[in-house]
Write a protein that binds this DNA or RNA. Sequence first.
DNA 1: CAGCAGGGGGCGT
DNA 2: CGCCCCCTGCTGT
Length: 141
Amino acid sequence: MQTHQAGPSLSSQKPRVFKCDTCEKAFAKPSQLERHSRIHTGERPFPCTLCEKAFNQKSALQVHVKKHTGERPYRCEHCAMGFTQKSNMKLHVKRAHSYAGTLQEAVGQQEPVGEELSHTLHLEEVVQETGGEWQALANVF
DNA sequence: CAGCAGGGGGCGT
DNA sequence: CGCCCCCTGCTGT
């Protein structure tokens, strides 16, 4: 009976035997349940070595550290803008270039490409150093 | 931009 | 199996 009860996402009918007793979510793997349980306990086993923040998931920490290192692995192929997270980049592409997802051109073909643009404007280092106005600009793109 | 929550897969035991 | 890691979508400031 337990193997067919609803899981957290509702999509995916995998058996979920491991149930959280704080909330009613269930998971396919014990380690997933254990990971989930610490969002109730507030436990944060992954501290950042550069600042004093901590995370409940290692991947969250890894992404966070990129903020300190300035690493920006995900690059927009249309305007060469860099991002720390892929989903943020995807969102940017959709909004700035109205480009849903399946590669190849979309709407605005008038794009001579902004290759050297990032160099002349020093885009890599200007990001949100103190002022919050850049944040507002992000919504335009 | 930054962080959270969950799914799935690979690898060692 | 069990654990660890990476990826992805969504939410928050």
